[in-house]
C-alpha cells in the first residue's frame, strides 16, 4: 500500500475560475514546484484519478459536468477546492450566474486559500488530501465486503 500512497493521480477541472488558479495548478507540476516528487501526476481521465482539483465557483452550466467527473472517480477519492471562488464564489459571488462554491455541487475535503492560490499552498492542499485518501483506503480495506459502499460516506468528513 505504501506504493499507492505516493502515487496520486490528479484530475483537474476548471469550474468557472478566472484562470489564475488554473495556471498556478499547472505551475505546481512544472520543475520549480514539481508535484511529481510527491508522486502526483495529472491524468485527463477521471476513471483513473484519486484526487479532483477544482478551481472556481459552480455555475448552472457546469454543475452537471462537475458531478459527472466526480461520479466517475473510483473510491477512495478526495476533492480539493482551490482558491476563494471554489470556497464561496469569491469576487464573483454576487454574479448572477454563479451558484456558489464547489461544495454546493460535490463534497469537498480540503480548501486551499488565496486569490489566486499560490503553488506552495496548492501543494500543501494536495498533500493534506493525500493523507485523507490514505485513511479512506485503510477504511475501505478493513470494511466488510458487503458494506463497502456505505463505509466511506464522503460528505461526512466536511
Amino acid at each position: 500500500m505504501g506504493g499507492v500512497e505516493r502515487s496520486i493521480w490528479i484530475v483537474h477541472y476548471d469550474a468557472s475560475s478566472c484562470n489564475g488558479c488554473d495556471i498556478e495548478v499547472l505551475a505546481c507540476l512544472t520543475p520549480v514546484y514539481d508535484a511529481e516528487r510527491f508522486g502526483c501526476i495529472v491524468t485527463g481521465d477521471p476513471k483513473q484519478a484519486d484526487l479532483l482539483l477544482v478551481t472556481g465557483g459552480v455555475n448552472n452550466r457546469n454543475v452537471e459536468v462537475l458531478k459527472s467527473i466526480y461520479g466517475q472517480m473510483p473510491e477512495p477519492r478526495a476533492v480539493v477546492a482551490i482558491g476563494a471562488c471554489a470556497y464561496s464564489g469569491g469576487v464573483f459571488s454576487e454574479c448572477y450566474n454563479v451558484c456558489g462554491g464547489v461544495a454546493t455541487a460535490i463534497p469537498v475535503d480540503v480548501y486551499v486559500p488565496g486569490c489566486a492560490a499560490k503553488p506552495e499552498s496548492i501543494l500543501d492542499g494536495v498533500l493534506r488530501a493525500a493523507a485523507i485518501l490514505k485513511e479512506r483506503r485503510v477504511a475501505l480495506r478493513s470494511a466488510p465486503r458487503n458494506a463497502k459502499k456505505g463505509s466511506t460516506e464522503e460528505g461526512a468528513r466536511r
Binding site: 476548471d14 469550474a15 465557483g57 457546469n62 454576487e94 454574479c95 450566474n97 486569490c115
Partner: peptide, 24 residues
Amino acid sequence: YIHRGLEMLVEKRDFTDYVHVAER
C-alpha cells in the same frame, strides 16, 4: 461553462473597486 456574468457586477461595485473584478 465559465460564464459568470461579471460585466453586470459593475452595477453593484464602486468604480474604483471594480478594477479587482476587471483583473479577474
